[in-house]
Amino acid sequence: MDIKKQFKEGLVTQNPVLVQLLGMCSTMAITTVFFNGVGMGLAVLIILTCSNIVISALRKIIPDKIRIACFIVVIASFVTIVDLLLQAFVPALADSLGVFIPLIVVNCIILGRAEGFCYKNGVAASAVDGIFQGIGYTWVLIVMCLVREFLGNGTILGGLSFLNDGNGIRILPEGVGALGISLPVGGFLVLAALIAFMQWALARAEKNKTEEVAK
């Protein structure tokens, strides 16, 4: 088990959204307000870690042929638990995320990690993997939210109920924002820009490495 490597992979080099290109539906759909991004990110982080632990603990019992069905049952149970907890304790968040909370069941990140990592690795490594991959997903959501909220609406940190009644801190004057960025179009464009940035950064790091080796 190599925590440092897993940390780097989850956050940057194997980032679930920007490099593995998984779980894009929720990434684009809910990232209009800061609080949504944080809430969704944490929900996925918790579900991913729990389901990673359970699936890797059961990996020797689960028959190979029906493993996908077994994974889905485990994931769906945790999603239901989180869904009910959110509805009970953070109803505002549950309302604004709506159908995307139960849809975490079919979020490819969770099934992808179950199939690609937990089915082959031990419980401790899978738990660490779940946490880091979850953080990797969360930071992308938060960046998307900050960019889209700032450009689209002219505010930051919206949706936090203790901050200006959930309206966030206004930076640009009202009516200046480019409304399109908070509409679906903006989701596609901002995510495209982020992935392009990631490809550029990774290619650059690769180039520097080979140059150093050459020296």
């Binding site: 290109l21 399109g180 679906p184 179009v185 903006g186 989701g187 596609f188 464009l189 995510l191 495209a192 820009a193 992935i195 392009a196 940035f197 490809q199 550029w200 290619a203």
Partner: peptide, 18 residues
């Protein structure tokens, strides 16, 4: 080069969404 592959496909989809 950075936009090659996936990002440019996303931009295309964004324009159709528009």
């Amino acid at each position: 080069k950075a936009f090659e592959g996936f990002p440019i496909a996303l931009v295309t989809a964004g324009l159709i969404a528009l």
